[in-house]
Design a protein around this nucleic acid. Structure first.
Length: 324
RNA sequence: ACGCCAGUAGCUCAAUUGGCAGAGCAGCUGAUUCCAAAUCAGCAGGUUGGGGGUUCAAGUCCCUCCUGGCGUGCCA
């Protein structure tokens, strides 16, 4: 069984774009993979200075992932907090010492963030090394990522190979697995759905605001009676992204677009119903989980124990290899 | 460590010799619309970075601290 590692950012409310883009694939992968999923709490510190909010977000993202269907039962998915595995920071240091500075200078995510006006701490700068440590700490076979993260996995591979070259075979060099980008959804304004654009749809919202949110999706002004091109419509793209391209409901909605006589208001109602249906069990589960903090703690404790056992092995290997 | 510049609504910025803290955008509510967009009407938004002082009156002047940017120096 292949081992898979993935990290998630505790960046506040998740949205249906996250689900279609990544979470759903984790849920599918858990059937036939050994999975390690961690909350990137150290990484989060590169961009937040609000302790209360950070700890809230960390807890919430765990709840939301489980609500979405990640199964934290022993032997299924190991969910843990990054800072519960301090070995990661030691690995980060060992890797830092084989990382040429120019490798970080070239990292596009750093350059992007700085050009957007984010304050550049050393932590943000060496972020890819910490990420390499996350990955290498559990000897994964695969690291599923979006296209924006491919470079970071390449850096991980480079650092692992460099370390192995200098100190002998130590790290398993992981492969990245590009996530299907078909999962990318537009937001209510038609741009890519992203928290930073403020255009997300949160499947856990109360029904009334949720409905309003969906109704506010930007459309063109084609009259009701005219046929419409579904591929040009944000509402349809979101619908298809959530229901699936091969789902009969998607085919039916597509027909109604092409036939004419259906207004965008109806399409939005269909999307609203779809979201309530698809996320109904997640919504209920989330309420249960929020009322059971003890359970979340247990999950995290088990996850941390499993991840830490792996991380110790790897760290021991690395220490010995470099002469410590 | 020292020096210079800056900090006003979520964002970008105004505010005359010290004289009622404002605008644009974003946001929210309503009208309109199949739903949106656009437009119109309305609403909300603030410890002017914190504290102290001068004054009848401080965003504005003085002191101090904090944060950020830039520069110089010092130590390793």
């Amino acid at each position: 069984m292949k081992r898979v590692l993935s990290g998630i950012q505790p960046s506040g409310q998740l949205h249906v774009g996250n689900f279609a883009g990544a979470i759903r694939q984790f849920v599918e992968m858990q059937r036939d993979h050994e999975m390690y999923v961690f909350v990137a709490s150290y990484h989060a510190l590169t961009s937040t200075r609000d302790p209360r909010k950070l700890s809230e977000n960390i807890r919430q993202v765990v709840i939301d992932y489980i609500a979405f269907g990640l199964d934290p039962a022993p032997g299924k998915v190991n969910i843990y907090l990054q800072h519960d595995v301090p070995e990661v920071t030691e690995l980060c240091w060992l890797l830092s010492c084989v990382c040429p500075k120019h490798m970080m200078d070239k990292a596009t995510s750093f350059k992007d963030k700085v050009s957007k006006g984010l304050q550049a701490s050393i932590g943000l700068y060496v972020y890819p090394i910490l990420q390499a440590a996350d990955i290498l700490s559990v000897d994964p076979d695969l690291v599923p990522v979006g296209s924006d993260q491919v470079q970071h996995v390449e850096i991980t591979r480079d650092l692992a190979m460099k370390f192995n070259h200098y100190f002998g075979e130590t790290f398993k060099v992981p492969a990245h697995k590009l996530r299907e980008e078909a999962g990318t959804l537009p937001g209510v304004d038609g741009q890519k759905m992203s928290k930073s654009y403020g255009n997300t749809i949160d499947p856990f919202m109360a029904e009334k605001p949720l409905r309003k949110r969906i109704m506010s999706i930007v459309t063109d002004s084609t009259p009701v009676e005219d046929p419409k091109d579904p591929t040009q419509c944000t509402v349809f793209q979101i619908f298809r992204g959530l229901a699936g391209a091969n789902d009969p409901r998607t085919a039916e909605l597509e027909q109604r677009y092409r036939a004419g006589g259906m207004g965008y208001g109806d399409a939005k109602k269909a999307l609203f119903e779809l979201i309530l249906e698809e996320f109904g069990s997640a919504r209920r589960k989330r309420v249960e989980l929020m009322n059971d903090p003890g359970y979340i703690e247990t999950v995290l404790r088990h996850g941390a124990a499993a991840a830490r056992a792996k991380a110790r092995e790897v760290t021991d290997r690395a220490r010995k290899a470099c002469g410590l």
